[in-house]
Amino acid sequence: MGVGPTGKGDWLTTRVDQLVNWARKNSLWPMPFGTACCGIELMSVLASRHDIARFGAEAIRFSPRQSDLLLVAGRISIKMMPVLTRIYEQMPEPKWIISMGACASSGGVFDTYSVIQGIDQFLPVDVYIPGCPPRPEAILDGLIKLQKVIERDSLRHYQSAETAT
């Protein structure tokens, strides 16, 4: 991004991709899908001490139609997986997924018939946060990682199938 020149009138030159990505990455609206102790840790990230608002992601939406970041925090059972898939499909593009904690990422210690062994088998996860549960700092680090993912994105990636050819 270039800013200038000094003097009369402020203007800047940039590319549309960079401007859009800058807006997107700093205004993520998370949809928290907390099913276990990771959800409790997530609340701490939202609260004042760690304050996820510093990264522009404080607008928690409990409606998937108003959010663009799915934060899966906790173990997902076989009964919950269709619900999670449906919530993801209801989110408008562009959308991202953070898999928070050992259970959402790999099933964790719950190697049983009823627990999904990693939601990335069925959903396109962008960032994994390890930990059981992760520290709030780790969650913020995951969010920063996701912002770097968004920085690399391009509007050309969002062309429809017909125009992409």
Partner: peptide
């Protein structure tokens, strides 16, 4: 069996939407 008979891996896979495919490993 403790780990089930494949129920936990028997779900449809949702792909990333058509355009937003950046290189997976970066």
């Amino acid at each position: 069996p403790l780990q089930g008979r494949g129920e936990r891996s028997d779900f449809p896979v949702v792909e990333r939407s058509i355009g937003s495919k950046w290189p997976a490993t970066q």
